[in-house]
Design a protein around this nucleic acid. Structure first.
Length: 159
DNA sequence: GCCAACGTTGGC
DNA sequence: GCCAACGTTGGC
């Protein structure tokens, strides 16, 4: 089982939106490195849900990967911001995942707090200039995140 | 609104 | 294949 961190702007799609939907498709990723991480995800993996462009930015909740290698439908939609004219249904460029809502943290773990617990090697999101919207999280860092935040979920590898 | 840190594009 | 110009992300 692997751990990930996925970023989204709460004004666009936040943890509360995922809570309403319960299962959400993580569409719109148009960065190859981020896409490669999405393709590496496995059902049952956990994703920390990070709010970017928020006041303050930080970790807002937890989601679980339930379906992988999902073809992102927005790449074929000419009306979508994420339309990719070079992609075809026969050879789609952009694959993504579906996430299941797990929980919202009672208190957001702000980027400042994350920086007080992790250096940039331990948790890539605290590194200045990291714009990747999908980031792998080591088991060690995931476990420490569970200690830092008020998760009601038990650390999954011990559950 | 600023700007650092990239990723992408396109001319050559 | 290089690299300058440009665009985007996202914290501040």
């Amino acid at each position: 089982m692997s751990y990930w961190l996925i970023k989204s702007e709460p004004d666009v799609y936040g943890i509360e939106d995922l809570k309403k939907e319960q299962i959400g498709i993580w569409d719109g990723v148009r960065n190859y490195q981020a896409r490669n991480f999405l393709k590496a995800m496995q059902p049952g993996d956990y994703a920390f849900f990070y709010h970017s462009n928020a006041k303050p930015p930080g970790l807002a909740g937890l989601a679980k990967i339930v379906e992988t290698m999902v073809v992102d439908p927005t790449q074929f939609d000419p009306n979508s911001d994420y339309f990719d004219p070079k992609s075809t249904p026969e050879a789609p460029r952009w694959h993504t995942v579906k996430c299941q809502y797990v929980e919202t943290l009672p208190e957001l773990i702000s980027l400042d707090v994350l920086r007080s617990h992790f250096n940039e090697d331990e948790l890539l999101v605290v590194k200045r200039g990291t714009r990747l919207s999908v980031i792998p999280v080591s088991v060690e860092s995931a476990q420490r995140l569970f200690q830092v935040g008020q998760f009601s979920t038990v650390f999954p590898s011990l559950a």
